[in-house]
Every structure is written in structure tokens, then in C-alpha cells.
């Protein structure tokens, strides 16, 4: 993932993820649900990611594992952006 994307994802998770600690202290692979993100906060994160990156998570990606960590979110967005580039 690019550092710009990384920063943007981190900002969005910090703003919408309702984490119990500062997002700056969360590592890329740390479990966001263990860090306090609820299912409903997950959706707010998802909607913000869709707005900022101009993407839409398809049905098959609407599962907990897609949003489990900052790295997992980055992987998912990379896939969606590359699909858009090749479309």
C-alpha cells in the first residue's frame, strides 16, 4: 500500500472506528475489532473509505475479515482500485 493511502486509511479509521486507543498506536496488522471497533463503527469506516477512494465494496467483500486490520483494508482497496484501472 502507498504511504498516502496508508495515511488516509489510518485517518478514516481514527475518525470513524471508535477505537479504544489512539489510532497512531495501532500497528498495521493489529486486529481493529480487538482494538474496540464495533460492527456499526465498521460500517461508518466502510462508507467513509468508499467516499474518499471513490470505490464500492462488493457484496463478497462485506465480511469482517476485509476490515480486520489497517493492512487488510489497504489490501482490499488496492484490489478495488486496480480493478477500476483495468476496467
Amino acid at each position: 500500500m502507498t504511504s498516502n493511502m496508508d495515511d488516509e486509511i489510518r485517518r478514516i479509521v481514527g475518525a470513524h472506528g471508535h477505537l479504544s486507543s489512539d489510532v497512531g498506536t495501532v500497528s498495521d496488522r493489529q486486529d481493529l475489532f480487538h482494538a474496540g471497533m464495533t460492527s456499526h463503527a465498521n460500517v461508518n469506516v466502510m462508507l467513509a473509505l468508499e467516499d474518499v477512494f471513490d470505490i464500492e465494496f462488493p457484496e463478497e467483500m462485506l465480511r469482517r475479515s476485509t476490515f480486520q486490520s489497517l493492512a487488510a483494508i489497504g489490501d482490499a482497496i488496492s484490489i478495488l482500485l486496480s480493478e477500476r484501472m483495468s476496467a
Binding site: 460492527s39 456499526h40 465498521n42 460500517v43 465494496f57 462485506l62 465480511r63 469482517r64
Partner: peptide, 13 residues
Amino acid sequence: GRLGTILANTQLE
């Protein structure tokens, strides 16, 4: 809704 899809998948998983 779409939140429901995530919740339903989690419930099944």
C-alpha cells in the same frame, strides 16, 4: 442493508 451483510456473514462465520 450492507451493514446487515457484514453482520450476517460474521454471524455465520
